[in-house]
Amino acid sequence: MSYLLEQVLNGLSYGLVLSLIAAGFAIVFTSTGVLNFAHGSIVLLGAYLVAVLHDSIGFWPAVLVGLAGAALVGVAINAVLVRNLADKKPDTAAILMLGVDIVLLTELTRRIGNQVLTLGAPWGASVVRFGDVSLPTGRVLAAGVTVVAFGALWYLFSRTDLGVGMRAAAADGPTASLMGIRLSRTAATGWALAGVLAAVAGIFLTSFPAPGVAPTVALSAFAAIPAWVLGGFDSVPGAVIGGLLIGLTSALVTGYESDLEPFLGSGFGEVAPYVVMIVVLLVRPSGLLGSKEAVRV
């Protein structure tokens, strides 16, 4: 029983980290309509900044630089590239982000080399025990931070002018613009928020139980895509639910791999999130909490 509980907790805490990334996808998509294929590089960038800076300026200042750096890069990508696209269409923007991803990821990979860069996180390899179940401290912290982050997001979107403006801009850009909402500002805020969330996720994905920063961390963004999609493209709460669902699925499929292998083949843990995503899309084409896409006549 405690084994099942441990796997569930593992899955949920990993899922919360995924949901940070998924929420980043959702926020960028709603604020600028961009499918951000470079999100993985930004996750990596945030973690990388912390890893190279923590020795000289200490861990917590390095975290601040990491969050700010990831946010700034996001804002810059939007201001310099996305807003200047020759064709402002979703497909074009997605491919543009692929180009950005190639450039960022190649440069980061070159800098990281074959080292496993450690973050110097103060929680190290410690664990927290609940009865006979143990969880890495980093994971428990991640869960806490994620809950706080989503609380802050909820406050921003429902209680502040900026957040309400962002929702208005997402719902109907031109009208919002006529009402005096500056779309450039809501877009920049969206990219900055996504960058911060990505960097936070990056830090938790590269500290214990993962050993440190390696280029493969960028791939974790792809694992968050099913979470984002099945939650609904434009919904932050959806991203949370999606993240939890995907985290749980992966952990359980992996944890019980030896029992499932005869039916599903080996390595099903990698595909399971996508299968869940396709099934959910079949039943609810706009995701669990996504708003129905309007059919314009």
Partner: peptide, 22 residues
Amino acid sequence: ILAQEITPATTDLSAQASALAQ
């Protein structure tokens, strides 16, 4: 033998480790 398949993208082996410990 208890086999656990992973990919290079798996950087956190908590789930696998729990299964092994179990």
